[in-house]
Design a protein around this nucleic acid. Structure first.
Lengths: 342, 342
DNA sequence: AATATTTTCGAGACCGTTCCCGGGAACGGT
DNA sequence: ACCGTTCCCGGGAACGGTCTCGAAAATATT
């Protein structure tokens, strides 16, 4: 049964007409006799004809596809972002092609070439954790392929960007902790070449300065690539000479695991140590105490990025556009030292 | 700068040679003078030449791409499965193209056509929740495109299948609950046209029969599409005349939310109601009490499915292959009514 | 030196589709 | 009956590569 796929030419031959006519019928153009058209359409559906997208795309010089280059889909932030992208792309009648860098610079570079070779019409990119340079994107942009970076963006390049107010929200989160009486706030800072991590750290630092709280380098934990070191970080925090009374975690997963470990060591949350996460995963509501977090609007960011990209694909000489998506601080039990009504 | 992409012909013209020669150099064949070759390669990299995959694939009649058709990537099971697929595909030098059905039959069908039109070399499919028929896959198989179904498989079709021992493990889970003294075990049963749900229910029923425990229809909860009804299900369970002493949940998310609600109603887990989840998400370890669950080896399933598929792509007249991946019952606090050492 | 062999390259068909262009048929108006 | 439109349709180039075949050039063989 492994016959070759049926083509437009097969249909033409069987009907004794030219392939031009078949093409006309199949692509729904008007200059064709209704009768011929139905005859062609009938035979096509009977033969289970599927147009060869490769040929069409080659001829049209466009693929109706947007390439999505993200660190990994197992990360819920990105899988949700993809959801937002998908929705917008569907509405615009475009397909998406997803590549995962697995947080590796080399994989990111390879995937980029692969996507360009596949002639995607545009790119949606969130940098890998390893990518501390971005020269690999320049030639792509020079070729006229529009790129929109989102979340893990790339400042030193002339392309559209969608990001959250990392600085603001980190400041807000830190000030919230301060307002709860915390004075020794530990900060888990991610890779400092990442736009997001850098701004969060700055927000944290500026909040401390603003409230005249001394900045201790030992409170700033520069986390490594490997993220299954929470146990180690927890031990470090517990054993600090001046034990922190709050931890601003990298993300909710880290925060929740940290919470678990701290509790095992007999520490009370938030009384002994307050905990603030990042991303507002579903689970935040279900742990005990419930975890305060920062709502990172993944879907909205994906959708916004996709919108901007599609706009740029359709209007190639648009200027790059930057869009800020607001995050929101969600206060739950894990940071509420001062409970009203007590 | 939006010049057209540089082609093999451009290079040929600039070097005053034929495009055949350029092709030879670029695709690394041997019958070419080393000097000419380096000259071509140099110019190519200088011009940032990227081969047009569309043209290559069209000519080669194969795309080196496997299509992945899954319900949704936000579901951790599937995103992990994609991870496994990715790994195997990378090693085999193949690309993957992911489509999400969003649990919709129509979207699944559309995506299927889209993937076939894109001339993927093979397909990895996990059925959408809505798909209670599978006739749309038959013509694809007849065309000689190999398909491997995984997890949410499709029994009435002649294709390879990768699945877990849902029946066995549901039985084992139920027997574990029985061994803990549970006699009124509620079962959250998913869509019964799904292979997985059907077998789990059967395992549950047979375990009860085996231990002479009466089967109550009111204990079998047929959950709906919309999964944000946990509150409702919890209320139903609590208000049953004979309140269950155990709940075998659909998945961990449901179980954890259920746990949260039951606790709010003053019920003790596992003393009043034991809880057993499904999927072994990370979070299971961090909730209180920690959640017993069934380890569903998502990555292994994805990897196995990809291996089988690639094998079938390379050897087209292989017979369909079924592979069973074993799950594992992980007992934690939420089902341990009888604690040793007390 | 003539022939055989190897090395290197070019011409052109082909993959499946779109689309431009031009031709013939049908049809209207005179 | 003639001409101008309009309506359908076919021929064939093009998209960017690969690949087969054969030819020319270089080298080896006798």
């Amino acid at each position: 049964m492994d016959k070759k796929a049926v083509t437009i030419k097969d249909i033409a031959r069987m009907l004794n007409i030219s392939k031009s006519t078949v093409s006309r019928a199949l692509s729904g153009r008007s200059d064709i006799h209704p009768e011929t058209k139905t005859k062609i359409l009938d035979l096509a559906s009977q033969l289970q004809y599927e147009p060869n997208t490769l040929a069409i795309n080659l001829k049209q010089q466009r693929t109706n596809t947007i390439g999505v280059l993200i660190p990994e889909t197992t990360n819920r932030f990105f899988s949700r972002a993809v959801g937002g992208i998908q929705k917008v792309a569907d509405m615009a009648g475009m397909n998406i092609m997803i590549c995962q860098s697995n947080e590796s610079y080399i994989a990111e570079k390879n995937n980029l070439h692969s996507l360009v070779s596949s002639r995607v019409d545009g790119l949606l990119v969130s940098l890998s954790r390893e990518s501390d340079r971005s020269d690999h994107f320049k030639p792509v942009i020079d070729k006229g392929i529009p790129i929109v970076f989102f979340d893990r963006i790339c400042e030193d390049i002339n392309a559209s960007q969608v990001f959250t107010d990392n600085y603001q929200i980190a400041m807000e989160g830190t000030e919230h902790l301060i307002s709860q009486g915390c004075k020794r706030i530990a900060m888990m800072a991610g890779q400092q070449h990442l736009f997001t991590s850098r701004n969060r750290l700055m927000g944290y630092l500026d909040a401390l300065k603003k409230h005249n709280i001394p900045i201790l380098q030992s409170y700033i934990i520069h986390t490594q690539y490997a993220s299954n070191k929470v146990e180690e970080y927890a031990r470090y925090i517990i054993n600090l000479p001046q034990r922190p009374d709050a931890v601003f975690a990298l993300n909710d997963y880290t925060a929740i695991e940290m919470m678990h470990i701290l509790k095992k060591h007999g520490l009370k949350i938030p009384e002994d140590i307050a905990l603030l996460g990042f991303n507002n995963e579903n689970m935040c509501r279900f742990v005990e105490p419930s975890l305060s977090s920062i709502d990172h609007p993944a879907q909205d960011m994906g959708a916004a990025a996709a919108e901007i990209l599609i706009n740029h694909i359709r209007h190639p000489d648009l200027k790059p556009e930057n869009r800020l998506i607001k995050s929101k601080l969600l206060i739950r039990e894990s940071t509420l030292k001062i409970r009203e009504g007590i």
